[in-house]
Design a protein around this nucleic acid. Structure first.
Length: 197
DNA sequence: ACATTAAATTTAA
DNA sequence: TTAAATTTAATGT
């Protein structure tokens, strides 16, 4: 994404969060740009039944809900750290100044936003399927698409069954059964409980 | 075909 | 050594 040193030159600072810590809560007013240096962060929401829905799993290089910096709305999700993370944090005003002074970075930002929106469409299409298999394969394909090695069984899925359930809106038990079926069909392999796709 | 509930077992913090 | 994750099974929609 945006080069680290450029962010630093505009006053960005490193901040470290441990597992379970919350970077921001649903309903808060966005004030900063966050870019992940290391670790992983999930964006989630709890429905009226208290069931967790995961909107995205964010990895190093990605920014966290940057779209909110361009519109005057509150965060629609919580950002929760799922793996000890270091982020670069830049206040909104400084971020805007950077966008103004670096049109090329601003263009890149358009591209990143477009890409995420595109993937959101794909995910939504898959996740609307009546078949659990399609939903889960959609998530696996999406996550694998960022892996440098696209050959079979080369990608170790960094998600728990629980997380897969929260992403797809399925029950854990359904995820487990579906994953086992996919293993029988040789679509993926399970090596000591980890999914290799 | 998937959800729900319950219970057992394995694993990670 | 608790809490969380995974798994199996019975039953409901």
């Amino acid at each position: 994404m945006i080069p680290e040193n450029l962010l630093l030159s505009y006053g960005a600072e490193y901040e470290t969060f441990s597992r379970g810590e919350i970077i921001f809560d649903e309903g808060e007013t966005p004030k900063c740009y966050y870019q992940i240096i290391s670790g992983r962060i999930k964006l989630n929401h709890y429905n009226e039944a208290g069931k967790e829905l995961i909107l995205a799993i964010l990895e190093p290089g990605l920014s966290v809900c940057e779209l909110l910096l361009f519109i005057d709305k509150k965060y629609p999700v919580n950002a929760v750290v799922i793996e000890e993370s270091t982020v670069l944090k830049l206040p909104k005003a400084d971020f805007m100044k950077m966008m103004d002074e670096h049109p090329n970075i601003s263009k890149d930002m358009n591209k990143f936003l477009s890409e995420r929106l595109y993937h959101k469409f794909m995910m939504l299409e898959n996740n609307s399927s009546l078949h659990a298999e399609v939903r889960i394969k959609g998530v696996l394909d999406y996550h694998k698409s960022f892996s440098p090695d696209q050959s079979n069984y080369s990608y170790e899925v960094p998600l728990t069954r629980q997380q897969l359930a929260s992403i797809t809106g399925l029950r854990v038990e359904t995820v487990i059964r579906t994953i086992k079926n996919l293993e029988k069909q040789e679509v993926l392999k399970i090596i000591n409980r980890n999914i290799h796709y």
